[in-house]
Design a protein around this nucleic acid. Structure first.
Lengths: 203, 203
DNA sequence: GTCTATACGAAGATAGAC
DNA sequence: GTCTATCTTCGTATAGAC
Protein backbone atom coordinates (compact mmCIF):
# COMPACT_ATOMS: atom_id res chain seq x y z
CA UNK A 1 0.00 0.00 0.00
CA UNK A 2 1.51 3.30 -1.06
CA UNK A 3 0.92 6.28 1.23
CA UNK A 4 -2.01 7.75 -0.70
CA UNK A 5 -3.30 4.33 -1.70
CA UNK A 6 -3.51 3.30 -5.28
CA UNK A 7 -5.42 5.68 -7.47
CA UNK A 8 -6.63 3.08 -9.93
CA UNK A 9 -7.75 0.96 -7.03
CA UNK A 10 -9.99 3.71 -5.75
CA UNK A 11 -11.34 4.35 -9.20
CA UNK A 12 -12.18 0.69 -9.61
CA UNK A 13 -14.24 0.63 -6.41
CA UNK A 14 -16.02 3.81 -7.41
CA UNK A 15 -16.74 2.49 -10.89
CA UNK A 16 -18.04 -0.74 -9.42
CA UNK A 17 -20.50 1.22 -7.29
CA UNK A 18 -21.71 3.16 -10.33
CA UNK A 19 -22.11 0.01 -12.41
CA UNK A 20 -23.90 -1.76 -9.55
CA UNK A 21 -26.60 0.83 -9.37
CA UNK A 22 -27.06 1.14 -13.12
CA UNK A 23 -26.70 -2.44 -14.33
CA UNK A 24 -26.98 -4.66 -11.27
CA UNK A 25 -24.54 -6.98 -9.57
CA UNK A 26 -24.16 -9.75 -12.14
CA UNK A 27 -23.51 -7.24 -14.89
CA UNK A 28 -20.78 -5.61 -12.86
CA UNK A 29 -17.97 -7.80 -14.13
CA UNK A 30 -14.30 -7.15 -13.70
CA UNK A 31 -14.04 -6.42 -17.40
CA UNK A 32 -16.70 -3.73 -17.23
CA UNK A 33 -15.22 -2.18 -14.12
CA UNK A 34 -11.86 -1.99 -15.88
CA UNK A 35 -13.41 -0.44 -18.96
CA UNK A 36 -15.37 2.07 -16.90
CA UNK A 37 -12.54 3.06 -14.60
CA UNK A 38 -9.71 2.90 -17.10
CA UNK A 39 -7.70 0.97 -14.53
CA UNK A 40 -5.02 -1.42 -15.76
CA UNK A 41 -6.06 -5.04 -16.03
CA UNK A 42 -2.75 -6.39 -14.78
CA UNK A 43 -3.15 -5.28 -11.19
CA UNK A 44 -6.66 -6.44 -10.43
CA UNK A 45 -5.65 -9.38 -8.26
CA UNK A 46 -2.87 -7.36 -6.78
CA UNK A 47 -5.33 -4.82 -5.42
CA UNK A 48 -8.13 -7.31 -4.76
CA UNK A 49 -6.73 -10.68 -3.70
CA UNK A 50 -10.28 -11.73 -2.94
CA UNK A 51 -11.18 -11.24 -6.59
CA UNK A 52 -14.49 -9.95 -7.80
CA UNK A 53 -16.30 -10.62 -4.52
CA UNK A 54 -13.93 -8.33 -2.65
CA UNK A 55 -14.35 -5.61 -5.24
CA UNK A 56 -18.15 -5.73 -5.03
CA UNK A 57 -17.98 -5.84 -1.26
CA UNK A 58 -15.90 -2.69 -1.11
CA UNK A 59 -18.23 -0.96 -3.54
CA UNK A 60 -21.16 -1.79 -1.27
CA UNK A 61 -19.32 -0.35 1.71
CA UNK A 62 -18.39 2.79 -0.23
CA UNK A 63 -21.91 3.43 -1.47
CA UNK A 64 -23.36 2.58 1.94
CA UNK A 65 -21.06 5.03 3.69
CA UNK A 66 -21.87 7.73 1.16
CA UNK A 67 -25.61 7.48 1.67
CA UNK A 68 -25.19 7.15 5.43
CA UNK A 69 -23.27 10.40 5.38
CA UNK A 70 -26.12 12.11 3.60
CA UNK A 71 -28.57 10.82 6.18
CA UNK A 72 -26.35 12.01 9.00
CA UNK A 73 -26.12 15.42 7.36
CA UNK A 74 -29.88 15.63 6.96
CA UNK A 75 -30.21 14.71 10.63
CA UNK A 76 -28.67 18.04 11.55
CA UNK A 77 -31.79 19.83 10.32
CA UNK A 78 -34.20 21.10 12.94
CA UNK A 79 -37.15 19.35 11.39
CA UNK A 80 -37.11 15.54 11.06
CA UNK A 81 -39.93 15.73 8.54
CA UNK A 82 -37.76 17.93 6.36
CA UNK A 83 -34.89 15.50 6.74
CA UNK A 84 -36.95 12.59 5.48
CA UNK A 85 -38.37 14.71 2.67
CA UNK A 86 -34.80 15.47 1.68
CA UNK A 87 -33.97 11.76 1.74
CA UNK A 88 -36.76 11.04 -0.71
CA UNK A 89 -35.78 14.01 -2.86
CA UNK A 90 -32.25 12.66 -3.02
CA UNK A 91 -33.39 9.38 -4.54
CA UNK A 92 -35.81 11.15 -6.82
CA UNK A 93 -33.03 13.36 -8.16
CA UNK A 94 -30.76 10.39 -8.77
CA UNK A 95 -33.47 8.69 -10.76
CA UNK A 96 -34.32 11.70 -12.89
CA UNK A 97 -30.74 12.75 -13.49
CA UNK A 98 -29.84 9.27 -14.69
CA UNK A 99 -32.95 8.98 -16.82
CA UNK A 100 -34.17 6.19 -14.54
CA UNK A 101 -31.07 4.10 -14.92
CA UNK A 102 -29.64 4.52 -11.42
CA UNK A 103 -31.21 2.35 -8.76
CA UNK A 104 -29.72 1.40 -5.40
CA UNK A 105 -26.42 -0.50 -5.48
CA UNK A 106 -27.11 -2.11 -2.11
CA UNK A 107 -30.43 -3.48 -3.35
CA UNK A 108 -28.75 -4.81 -6.47
CA UNK A 109 -26.31 -6.81 -4.40
CA UNK A 110 -28.94 -7.94 -1.91
CA UNK A 111 -31.27 -9.19 -4.64
CA UNK A 112 -28.67 -10.91 -6.79
CA UNK A 113 -26.73 -12.48 -3.99
CA UNK A 114 -26.81 -16.24 -3.87
CA UNK A 115 -25.25 -18.98 -1.84
CA UNK A 116 -21.78 -18.70 -3.33
CA UNK A 117 -21.09 -15.28 -1.83
CA UNK A 118 -22.91 -15.08 1.50
CA UNK A 119 -20.62 -12.31 2.68
CA UNK A 120 -22.25 -9.90 0.25
CA UNK A 121 -25.68 -10.40 1.79
CA UNK A 122 -24.23 -9.63 5.20
CA UNK A 123 -22.55 -6.49 3.88
CA UNK A 124 -25.82 -5.31 2.36
CA UNK A 125 -27.65 -6.04 5.60
CA UNK A 126 -25.04 -4.07 7.53
CA UNK A 127 -25.62 -1.06 5.31
CA UNK A 128 -29.37 -1.23 5.77
CA UNK A 129 -28.84 -1.50 9.54
CA UNK A 130 -26.63 1.53 9.59
CA UNK A 131 -29.12 3.62 7.66
CA UNK A 132 -31.85 2.47 9.98
CA UNK A 133 -29.90 3.45 13.08
CA UNK A 134 -29.21 6.92 11.72
CA UNK A 135 -32.86 7.52 10.88
CA UNK A 136 -34.12 6.00 14.13
CA UNK A 137 -31.83 8.24 16.14
CA UNK A 138 -33.39 11.23 14.42
CA UNK A 139 -36.88 10.19 15.48
CA UNK A 140 -35.92 9.33 19.03
CA UNK A 141 -34.24 12.70 19.21
CA UNK A 142 -37.62 14.25 18.47
CA UNK A 143 -39.63 12.41 21.06
CA UNK A 144 -40.47 8.98 19.69
CA UNK A 145 -39.89 5.90 21.81
CA UNK A 146 -36.85 3.84 20.86
CA UNK A 147 -38.82 0.93 19.40
CA UNK A 148 -41.15 3.10 17.39
CA UNK A 149 -38.20 5.03 16.03
CA UNK A 150 -36.55 1.87 14.78
CA UNK A 151 -39.77 0.57 13.30
CA UNK A 152 -40.45 3.79 11.48
CA UNK A 153 -36.88 3.93 10.17
CA UNK A 154 -37.01 0.40 8.76
CA UNK A 155 -40.37 1.18 7.23
CA UNK A 156 -39.11 4.31 5.50
CA UNK A 157 -36.04 2.60 4.08
CA UNK A 158 -38.17 -0.25 2.78
CA UNK A 159 -40.59 2.17 1.14
CA UNK A 160 -37.79 4.10 -0.52
CA UNK A 161 -36.05 1.01 -1.84
CA UNK A 162 -39.23 -0.57 -3.13
CA UNK A 163 -40.35 2.67 -4.73
CA UNK A 164 -37.00 3.16 -6.47
CA UNK A 165 -37.32 -0.28 -8.04
CA UNK A 166 -40.82 0.50 -9.29
CA UNK A 167 -39.77 3.89 -10.63
CA UNK A 168 -36.93 2.32 -12.58
CA UNK A 169 -39.22 -0.30 -14.06
CA UNK A 170 -41.94 2.09 -15.17
CA UNK A 171 -39.68 5.04 -15.98
CA UNK A 172 -41.65 7.37 -13.74
CA UNK A 173 -41.22 9.02 -10.36
CA UNK A 174 -44.83 8.30 -9.42
CA UNK A 175 -44.18 5.46 -6.95
CA UNK A 176 -41.49 7.43 -5.14
CA UNK A 177 -43.67 10.52 -5.04
CA UNK A 178 -46.52 8.46 -3.65
CA UNK A 179 -44.32 7.01 -0.92
CA UNK A 180 -42.85 10.41 -0.11
CA UNK A 181 -46.29 11.99 0.26
CA UNK A 182 -47.67 9.21 2.44
CA UNK A 183 -44.59 9.15 4.66
CA UNK A 184 -44.61 12.93 4.95
CA UNK A 185 -48.19 13.02 6.14
CA UNK A 186 -47.60 10.13 8.48
CA UNK A 187 -44.56 11.77 10.04
CA UNK A 188 -46.32 15.07 10.47
CA UNK A 189 -49.07 13.30 12.32
CA UNK A 190 -46.88 11.00 14.40
CA UNK A 191 -44.26 13.54 15.43
CA UNK A 192 -46.50 16.49 16.09
CA UNK A 193 -49.33 14.86 18.01
CA UNK A 194 -48.80 13.08 21.26
CA UNK A 195 -45.73 10.99 20.41
CA UNK A 196 -45.91 9.59 23.96
CA UNK A 197 -49.08 7.64 23.26
CA UNK A 198 -47.30 4.67 21.77
CA UNK A 199 -46.70 2.78 18.58
CA UNK A 200 -49.63 3.69 16.40
CA UNK A 201 -51.61 6.68 15.18
CA UNK A 202 -54.69 6.91 17.31
CA UNK A 203 -57.11 9.73 16.51
CA UNK B 1 -49.03 -26.34 -29.93
CA UNK B 2 -50.73 -29.55 -28.88
CA UNK B 3 -54.27 -29.32 -27.52
CA UNK B 4 -53.30 -29.34 -23.86
CA UNK B 5 -50.14 -27.42 -24.48
CA UNK B 6 -46.77 -28.95 -23.82
CA UNK B 7 -46.28 -30.20 -20.31
CA UNK B 8 -42.54 -29.65 -20.19
CA UNK B 9 -43.08 -26.16 -21.49
CA UNK B 10 -45.33 -25.33 -18.54
CA UNK B 11 -42.92 -26.87 -16.13
CA UNK B 12 -40.09 -24.79 -17.53
CA UNK B 13 -41.97 -21.54 -16.99
CA UNK B 14 -42.91 -22.55 -13.46
CA UNK B 15 -39.35 -23.56 -12.66
CA UNK B 16 -38.08 -20.28 -14.05
CA UNK B 17 -40.41 -18.40 -11.70
CA UNK B 18 -39.17 -20.39 -8.72
CA UNK B 19 -35.53 -19.86 -9.64
CA UNK B 20 -36.14 -16.16 -10.24
CA UNK B 21 -37.38 -15.56 -6.75
CA UNK B 22 -34.71 -17.68 -5.08
CA UNK B 23 -31.59 -16.91 -7.08
CA UNK B 24 -32.36 -13.84 -9.13
CA UNK B 25 -32.64 -13.22 -12.85
CA UNK B 26 -29.04 -13.65 -13.99
CA UNK B 27 -28.74 -16.93 -12.13
CA UNK B 28 -31.86 -18.23 -13.85
CA UNK B 29 -30.09 -19.72 -16.84
CA UNK B 30 -31.61 -22.09 -19.34
CA UNK B 31 -29.41 -24.86 -17.98
CA UNK B 32 -30.69 -24.38 -14.45
CA UNK B 33 -34.28 -24.21 -15.58
CA UNK B 34 -33.82 -27.48 -17.45
CA UNK B 35 -32.22 -29.12 -14.44
CA UNK B 36 -34.95 -27.87 -12.11
CA UNK B 37 -37.87 -28.75 -14.36
CA UNK B 38 -36.50 -31.94 -15.81
CA UNK B 39 -37.57 -30.73 -19.24
CA UNK B 40 -35.64 -31.96 -22.27
CA UNK B 41 -32.92 -29.71 -23.55
CA UNK B 42 -33.64 -30.33 -27.20
CA UNK B 43 -36.93 -28.49 -27.34
CA UNK B 44 -36.03 -25.25 -25.62
CA UNK B 45 -35.97 -23.14 -28.75
CA UNK B 46 -38.93 -24.99 -30.12
CA UNK B 47 -41.06 -23.84 -27.19
CA UNK B 48 -39.36 -20.50 -26.75
CA UNK B 49 -38.27 -19.10 -30.12
CA UNK B 50 -37.42 -15.86 -28.33
CA UNK B 51 -34.86 -17.74 -26.26
CA UNK B 52 -34.11 -17.05 -22.65
CA UNK B 53 -35.72 -13.60 -22.68
CA UNK B 54 -39.07 -15.09 -23.66
CA UNK B 55 -38.82 -17.73 -20.96
CA UNK B 56 -38.10 -15.14 -18.26
CA UNK B 57 -40.85 -12.92 -19.61
CA UNK B 58 -43.43 -15.69 -19.33
CA UNK B 59 -42.25 -16.52 -15.84
CA UNK B 60 -42.79 -12.89 -14.83
CA UNK B 61 -46.30 -12.97 -16.25
CA UNK B 62 -47.08 -16.24 -14.50
CA UNK B 63 -45.82 -15.08 -11.12
CA UNK B 64 -47.50 -11.71 -11.57
CA UNK B 65 -50.85 -13.32 -12.36
CA UNK B 66 -50.53 -15.63 -9.40
CA UNK B 67 -49.96 -12.83 -6.89
CA UNK B 68 -52.63 -10.69 -8.54
CA UNK B 69 -55.07 -13.53 -8.02
CA UNK B 70 -54.24 -13.62 -4.35
CA UNK B 71 -54.82 -9.88 -4.08
CA UNK B 72 -58.13 -10.20 -5.88
CA UNK B 73 -59.13 -12.99 -3.50
CA UNK B 74 -58.20 -10.94 -0.46
CA UNK B 75 -60.24 -8.07 -1.87
CA UNK B 76 -63.38 -10.13 -1.32
CA UNK B 77 -62.98 -9.74 2.44
CA UNK B 78 -65.22 -7.26 4.20
CA UNK B 79 -62.34 -5.43 5.78
CA UNK B 80 -59.68 -3.78 3.56
CA UNK B 81 -57.34 -3.59 6.54
CA UNK B 82 -57.58 -7.33 6.93
CA UNK B 83 -56.92 -7.76 3.23
CA UNK B 84 -53.69 -5.79 3.41
CA UNK B 85 -52.68 -7.59 6.60
CA UNK B 86 -53.16 -10.84 4.70
CA UNK B 87 -51.02 -9.53 1.85
CA UNK B 88 -48.16 -8.86 4.26
CA UNK B 89 -48.68 -12.21 5.94
CA UNK B 90 -48.41 -13.90 2.58
CA UNK B 91 -44.96 -12.48 1.93
CA UNK B 92 -43.91 -13.18 5.48
CA UNK B 93 -44.90 -16.83 5.13
CA UNK B 94 -43.04 -17.19 1.87
CA UNK B 95 -39.89 -15.81 3.48
CA UNK B 96 -40.07 -18.01 6.56
CA UNK B 97 -41.04 -21.17 4.72
CA UNK B 98 -38.12 -20.76 2.32
CA UNK B 99 -35.70 -19.91 5.13
CA UNK B 100 -35.37 -16.41 3.64
CA UNK B 101 -34.39 -17.61 0.21
CA UNK B 102 -37.54 -16.64 -1.66
CA UNK B 103 -37.80 -13.01 -2.62
CA UNK B 104 -39.99 -11.47 -5.30
CA UNK B 105 -39.40 -12.69 -8.87
CA UNK B 106 -40.71 -9.45 -10.34
CA UNK B 107 -38.24 -7.43 -8.32
CA UNK B 108 -35.43 -9.72 -9.39
CA UNK B 109 -36.19 -9.06 -13.04
CA UNK B 110 -36.76 -5.34 -12.51
CA UNK B 111 -33.45 -4.88 -10.69
CA UNK B 112 -31.29 -6.98 -13.00
CA UNK B 113 -32.78 -5.78 -16.23
CA UNK B 114 -30.45 -3.83 -18.44
CA UNK B 115 -30.52 -2.27 -21.85
CA UNK B 116 -30.33 -5.50 -23.80
CA UNK B 117 -33.77 -6.70 -22.73
CA UNK B 118 -35.98 -3.64 -22.30
CA UNK B 119 -39.10 -5.76 -22.71
CA UNK B 120 -38.48 -7.34 -19.32
CA UNK B 121 -38.60 -4.00 -17.54
CA UNK B 122 -41.92 -3.26 -19.21
CA UNK B 123 -43.29 -6.63 -18.17
CA UNK B 124 -42.26 -6.05 -14.58
CA UNK B 125 -43.82 -2.60 -14.65
CA UNK B 126 -47.05 -4.06 -16.00
CA UNK B 127 -47.21 -6.50 -13.09
CA UNK B 128 -46.66 -3.73 -10.56
CA UNK B 129 -49.39 -1.71 -12.27
CA UNK B 130 -51.83 -4.56 -12.12
CA UNK B 131 -51.21 -5.13 -8.43
CA UNK B 132 -51.63 -1.44 -7.80
CA UNK B 133 -54.96 -1.32 -9.60
CA UNK B 134 -56.30 -4.27 -7.63
CA UNK B 135 -55.31 -2.72 -4.32
CA UNK B 136 -56.49 0.75 -5.28
CA UNK B 137 -59.91 -0.60 -6.25
CA UNK B 138 -60.19 -2.07 -2.80
CA UNK B 139 -59.59 1.27 -1.13
CA UNK B 140 -61.88 3.21 -3.45
CA UNK B 141 -64.52 0.59 -2.72
CA UNK B 142 -64.26 1.56 0.91
CA UNK B 143 -64.57 5.27 0.52
CA UNK B 144 -61.20 6.67 -0.47
CA UNK B 145 -60.93 9.08 -3.39
CA UNK B 146 -59.51 7.57 -6.59
CA UNK B 147 -56.18 9.38 -6.43
CA UNK B 148 -55.60 8.60 -2.78
CA UNK B 149 -56.43 4.95 -3.40
CA UNK B 150 -53.82 4.70 -6.14
CA UNK B 151 -51.25 6.52 -4.07
CA UNK B 152 -51.80 4.30 -1.09
CA UNK B 153 -51.67 1.17 -3.25
CA UNK B 154 -48.34 2.13 -4.83
CA UNK B 155 -47.00 2.98 -1.40
CA UNK B 156 -47.98 -0.37 0.06
CA UNK B 157 -46.47 -2.36 -2.80
CA UNK B 158 -43.25 -0.38 -2.53
CA UNK B 159 -43.08 -0.99 1.21
CA UNK B 160 -43.66 -4.72 0.80
CA UNK B 161 -41.07 -5.11 -1.93
CA UNK B 162 -38.45 -3.08 -0.12
CA UNK B 163 -39.09 -4.90 3.14
CA UNK B 164 -38.80 -8.31 1.49
CA UNK B 165 -35.38 -7.38 0.15
CA UNK B 166 -34.23 -6.25 3.59
CA UNK B 167 -35.62 -9.38 5.24
CA UNK B 168 -33.77 -11.59 2.81
CA UNK B 169 -30.51 -9.74 3.39
CA UNK B 170 -30.66 -9.85 7.17
CA UNK B 171 -32.43 -13.19 7.50
CA UNK B 172 -35.14 -11.73 9.67
CA UNK B 173 -38.78 -10.78 9.29
CA UNK B 174 -38.28 -7.57 11.25
CA UNK B 175 -38.44 -5.13 8.31
CA UNK B 176 -41.59 -6.73 6.94
CA UNK B 177 -43.18 -6.78 10.38
CA UNK B 178 -42.31 -3.13 10.83
CA UNK B 179 -43.86 -2.20 7.49
CA UNK B 180 -46.95 -4.30 8.20
CA UNK B 181 -47.50 -2.66 11.55
CA UNK B 182 -47.05 0.88 10.25
CA UNK B 183 -49.30 0.27 7.26
CA UNK B 184 -51.93 -1.39 9.44
CA UNK B 185 -52.13 1.56 11.79
CA UNK B 186 -52.14 3.99 8.90
CA UNK B 187 -54.97 2.19 7.14
CA UNK B 188 -57.04 1.97 10.30
CA UNK B 189 -56.70 5.68 10.70
CA UNK B 190 -57.24 6.65 7.08
CA UNK B 191 -60.15 4.33 6.34
CA UNK B 192 -62.06 4.72 9.57
CA UNK B 193 -61.88 8.43 10.11
CA UNK B 194 -63.31 10.88 7.63
CA UNK B 195 -61.94 9.46 4.36
CA UNK B 196 -63.63 12.40 2.62
CA UNK B 197 -61.18 14.92 4.05
CA UNK B 198 -58.61 14.36 1.36
CA UNK B 199 -55.13 13.05 0.78
CA UNK B 200 -53.47 13.22 4.17
CA UNK B 201 -54.06 12.24 7.76
CA UNK B 202 -55.20 15.34 9.53
CA UNK B 203 -55.88 15.05 13.28
C1' DG C 1 2.09 -2.20 -10.01
C1' DT C 2 1.52 -3.44 -14.35
C1' DC C 3 2.01 -6.31 -18.64
C1' DT C 4 0.62 -10.37 -21.85
C1' DA C 5 -0.95 -14.83 -22.39
C1' DT C 6 -3.72 -18.47 -21.24
C1' DA C 7 -6.48 -22.08 -18.81
C1' DC C 8 -11.07 -23.12 -17.66
C1' DG C 9 -15.87 -23.08 -17.34
C1' DA C 10 -20.52 -21.36 -18.15
C1' DA C 11 -23.95 -19.61 -20.93
C1' DG C 12 -26.76 -18.42 -25.19
C1' DA C 13 -27.77 -19.91 -29.51
C1' DT C 14 -27.78 -22.72 -33.97
C1' DA C 15 -27.61 -26.88 -37.11
C1' DG C 16 -29.23 -31.01 -38.69
C1' DA C 17 -30.82 -35.78 -37.63
C1' DC C 18 -34.72 -38.45 -35.89
C1' DG D 1 -40.90 -32.54 -29.84
C1' DT D 2 -36.72 -34.14 -28.88
C1' DC D 3 -31.75 -35.49 -29.62
C1' DT D 4 -26.67 -34.58 -30.09
C1' DA D 5 -23.11 -31.84 -31.36
C1' DT D 6 -20.97 -27.45 -31.98
C1' DC D 7 -19.94 -22.39 -32.32
C1' DT D 8 -19.16 -18.22 -30.03
C1' DT D 9 -18.81 -15.07 -26.48
C1' DC D 10 -17.86 -13.80 -22.02
C1' DG D 11 -16.12 -13.96 -17.25
C1' DT D 12 -13.02 -15.51 -13.54
C1' DA D 13 -8.69 -16.57 -12.34
C1' DT D 14 -3.67 -17.77 -12.72
C1' DA D 15 1.23 -17.74 -14.54
C1' DG D 16 5.29 -15.59 -15.27
C1' DA D 17 7.80 -11.60 -17.22
C1' DC D 18 9.03 -6.72 -16.51
Amino acid sequence: MSPRRSDSRNRMVLSAAVLLREYGASATSIDRVLAHSGAPRGSVYHHFPGGRAQLIDEAVALAGDFIAGLIDAATQADDPVEAVDAFFALWRDRLVESDFRAGCPIVAVAVETNDDAPQLARSAAAVFARWQEALAALFVQHGLPEERGKRLAAFIIAAVEGAVIMCRAEQSTAPLDAAAAEIHDLLVYVLRTRPETGPGPRP
